[in-house]
């Protein structure tokens, strides 16, 4: 592994980074698309981090027990739906706000994930099959860098599908109406609570699929720190992406790349500040938030009634 960048030169590093960005972007992609759908309906789900975690542990367990990684993905999605539905139900109670419900879900969900995670001592669960993008190349390093999980392509398709749903379907219009002005939406006869419930539930399912990637892709092991704040960063990323599914895709790739930076530098022999380099995605997120947020005017693309009943 150490000699790869030297033998391939800068081109090799670029391919390794691109491959790393594609791999690393998958959790960001699914969570940010799920959060995008949730927030478009006017609700915030801060608990995406634990939905990611629960998705990861569920996918690991189911894949390990049944031997089928795709069943693991499905089970993760179902668990994500359940948690999303719980969040939706909580936030629709009078005098419960989205942020407090999110905090409650974070504490509840992480406890649950750690509880069930303790039982999975198997070193590795069956993993998802990979797609070879680098078969054109004779260099082994490039081929291994470009072995991409099918979830990557599903995520891309999903982003465009979500964009199409928002702009071209009546349900998408209902979601946007519920998020921009629930009063007006109710006046038009839209069942705002039901639309939001469905949006948050599907959003949870998407986020959990992102979690499934964490345990069903190399090295395919479960640990309590496996999500490492990616769900949280993906929530922040939606602001940066201005609530547009296609921009979420681009932002996810950017964050995936930032995440690949630490390990890439380490493979070049720069490992003096290992922990600080690994913290670069958090710094990047914080920087992006500081740059994009503003207390005075409304943010570009923000649903009008975000976080309100």
């Amino acid at each position: 592994m150490q000699s790869q960048p030297e033998t391939l030169g800068l081109w090799g590093i670029a391919v390794a980074l691109a491959g790393g960005a594609m791999r690393g972007s998958i959790p960001y992609m699914f969570v940010s698309l799920g959060e995008c759908l949730t927030e478009k309906s006017g609700k915030i789900n801060l608990g995406m981090e634990v939905i990611l975690l629960m998705g990861a542990v569920t996918a690991f367990g189911v894949s390990d027990v049944t031997g089928s990684p795709w069943l693991g993905v499905l089970a993760a999605a179902l668990v994500g739906m359940t948690l999303g539905a719980l969040h939706a139900w909580l936030t629709q109670q009078p005098s419960v706000n989205d942020v407090a419900a999110g905090i409650a879900m974070i504490i509840f969900g992480s406890g649950l994930a750690f509880f069930f995670g303790k039982r999975f001592v198997a070193p590795m669960a069956p993993q998802l099959p990979l797609i070879d993008l680098g078969s054109w190349s004779s260099a082994g390093a490039i081929r291994s860098a470009l072995r991409i999980s099918p979830l990557f392509f599903i995520g891309i398709a999903l982003a465009f599908a979500l964009h199409w749903i928002f702009t071209r379907t009546s349900w998408g219009l209902k979601v946007r109406a519920a998020g921009d002005d629930p009063q007006a939406a109710r006046a038009l006869g839209i069942n705002v609570n039901r639309v939001r419930f469905i949006a948050i539930t599907i959003g949870g399912a998407l986020a959990a699929i992102g979690g499934a990637h964490l345990t069903l892709y190399f090295p395919g092991i479960w640990s309590e720190g496996i999500s490492g704040g990616q769900g949280l960063m993906a929530v922040a990323l939606v602001i940066f992406a201005q609530w547009s599914p296609r921009r979420c895709l681009a932002a996810a790739l950017l964050f995936g790349g930032a995440q690949a930076l630490g390990p890439s530098l380490q493979s070049l022999g720069v490992n003096g500040y290992y922990h600080l380099f690994n913290a670069s995605p958090y710094l990047l997120t914080l920087g992006v938030m500081i740059a994009t947020c503003t207390p005075h005017r409304r943010l570009a693309g923000m649903p009008g009634a975000l976080g309100r009943k």
Binding site: L46, E49, V99, G102, I103, G228, G229, L232, M233, V235, A236, H275, L276, N278, A279, Y282, L283, T285, L286, M289, I290, C293, T294, P295, H296
Partner: peptide, 19 residues
């Protein structure tokens, strides 16, 4: 700056642990 204190707080948790 209007940055959600919930999000920045959790991010800062990760940064503190890294530090």
């Amino acid at each position: 700056r209007g940055v959600s204190a919930v999000i920045s707080g959790l991010l800062l948790n990760y940064l503190a642990v890294a530090l």
